[in-house]
Design a protein around this nucleic acid. Sequence first.
DNA 1: TCTATATATGAACATATGCTCATATATAGA
DNA 2: TCTATATATGAGCATATGTTCATATATAGA
Lengths: 111, 111
Amino acid sequence: MSEEQKFKVTFNEETQHLDEETLFVVSQTFKALSDPTRIRILNLLCTGEHSVNEIAETLNLSQSSVSHQLRFLKNLRLVKYRRAGTTLFYSEDDEHIMNLLKQAIEHATHH
Amino acid sequence: MSEEQKFKVTFNEETQHLDEETLFVVSQTFKALSDPTRIRILNLLCTGEHSVNEIAETLNLSQSSVSHQLRFLKNLRLVKYRRAGTTLFYSEDDEHIMNLLKQAIEHATHH
DNA sequence: TCTATATATGAACATATGCTCATATATAGA
DNA sequence: TCTATATATGAGCATATGTTCATATATAGA
């Protein structure tokens, strides 16, 4: 089997069959991006780090709601935080996924 | 104002505020990609057009479930179909969004 | 230690989601 | 027109999701 054929086989396996784990990770990732509140939070974090209260006030959301959503995003490692006293500053933690979000926003705005 | 500054302003405006409609379209798009069944269907359609029954049999899903999900995907214009007698052949209808899916699968498999 | 501020968390609730089951619709051929 | 095959659809159900409310936890300062 040539190198080219090997590549083709590998490629086809990747596009034709998705194992359970990949399917789970991909669906969870898109689920994170499928809620307006989380999109707004991530979009705000594009502009740099922000505290929980800053996010809540800027986006007109309850502190609790923001905190719940940030936990969700943090579990998926889409955001991280830095502590400064009692304040936690959240920021992006997955450039690749943030890029997907930006692409989708671009796509939605220009069509 | 330099060209560079102009670009920066435009860029910031786009990333800081999302209007209702954009938010809705983006969240709906990602919602379409957030379910394992729909991901498997779209991933299968990457390989070319397929009838409803083909999809159901290949992915081991009920005809009803596939039909419901295809309606969902069709409403978002992510898939289209071609009729041949009583058989409907479904295929991709949004290259850009399919590309987002492929990127996410790549991202999930290589990390 | 007591207080104030920032954030996290759990329960409860309303709504959304995805599946199955039964059935309707549509097309082709006899 | 009658039948067979392919697909669509609606109701019902179990589960998932996002929010609020009340409260817990954590840190800093007096």
